[in-house]
Design a protein around this nucleic acid. Structure first.
Lengths: 220, 220
DNA sequence: CTTATAGAGTGAACGGTGTTCACAACTATA
DNA sequence: TATAGTTGTGAACACCGTTCACTCTATAAG
């Protein structure tokens, strides 16, 4: 009597094989060079069949972007949070973001710089695991503020935004090969992060007021 | 007897009209949505005709990228260099770069983040006016180092790279709409730049050793 | 003034793209 | 066994960048 269930399982298996094929192709060649026909070839279905699993090519890459965010969060959490000093704990996720841009350039491009897949993040609801990570990092920053590592009255969310910006810049420049030929992008990323971090600790009038992602836990 | 000259002028006029049409289209709709056929339509030529003026679509956008760099350098030089204090003079070109990303987003995308036009900068030789600007800015930074605004032994080219990175990050995040809906990208860019600048002045061990763009003037 | 020539511009085509749709084929239910 | 419903397909549409054989025209030569 598990007929419906089996059918559903089969459907899901095909959907997954589409995503797998798409991922393989796009990790190897980039979004631009993945076509529906190539995916169809690889899974031995007709191109049209894919459209009964995903409404458009973009939706396949929305799914892959979500996969990318999971990968990112995973690798950012690989190391422990607490047993090291606060500054190191703060550096870690941002360096991790930069490293992600090098180890998974195509994912990074899809998630952060590609404009051909417009509005890759439609439903931030589906990305609550990203918001969770953001909150966790902000809490560490908050702890650092309390510990006097940053000036009091510093907004932890602003720190998050600024350090992200500091690390995304070099990442994108490297990804898009906009650096001078011999430049060491890794060192640049490290230094830009370190400069921003040092500057934040030294203190200056911060004007950036991030739109707090509405905290589900009341108060705090 | 000026027949050859007239013909050459006419050729150049058509080439220019192709670039104009391409620019209009791509400023309005982005590189992705500009097709040879649309350009051809607009200038009332057949698509094939364009290929006797530019060897490929990419070459049209190489030309537009160069135009973009000229625009950028222009706007970065609009204000005077000297009569203000050194810190302001240092901030200016980087804020200018960020502002450029807002006022000319499609140019900025083409010049810095678009990967669909691979290796947009083939001949850095043709972009010596960019190198000139870079050198001029580095010299101001050098002056600031001499004036004790930065720690001694600071590499002005590293400062240039770091401040660029600090400003490109927010620019790209805004361009690719990867910021949270309510976030003020302008403030983020200002603050990231200011954080990096403050950090550089406070001093930390810089590891980034930029590949000096070979200075034509011997010594110095 | 006529003819030959070089060059610009064209239409049609090639192989590619994302997407749609009528239809065939198979499966599960009654 | 007949019926309903789902799944996959082939063909097509409207695009894309690019190429090529061709025409036509304006110039130069005779």
């Amino acid at each position: 009597m598990g007929v419906k269930e089996r059918q559903e399982r089969e459907r899901e298996a095909v959907a997954r094989s589409i995503l797998d094929a798409a991922r393989d192709l796009f990790v190897a060649e980039g979004y631009q060079h993945v076509s529906i026909r190539k995916i169809a070839d690889r899974i031995e279905y007709s191109p049209a069949a894919i459209y009964s699993y995903f409404p458009s090519k973009d939706d396949i890459f929305f799914a892959l972007a979500e996969e990318g965010f999971r990968l990112l969060v995973e690798s950012a959490q690989a190391a422990p949070d607490d047993d090291t000093d606060l500054l190191t704990a703060i550096r870690r996720p941002f360096l991790s973001l930069y490293r992600f841009s090098r180890t998974h350039p195509e994912y990074f491009a899809l998630m952060f710089v590609d404009r051909s897949v417009p509005r890759i993040i439609r439903d931030w609801e589906r990305f609550d695991f990203v918001r969770d990570m953001k909150l966790r990092i902000s809490q560490i920053i908050q702890k650092a503020i309390a510990a006097g590592i940053f000036p009091p009255e510093t907004d932890p969310h602003a720190v998050f935004g600024i350090l992200s910006g500091a690390v995304v810049g070099p990442g994108v420049m490297q990804l898009c090969s906009r650096l001078a030929p011999g430049d060491d992008a890794d060192a640049l990323a490290r230094d830009t992060l370190e400069a921003a971090l040092t500057g934040l600790r030294a203190g200056f009038p911060i004007t950036f007021r991030p739109s707090q992602c509405e905290d589900t836990s009341a108060g705090q």
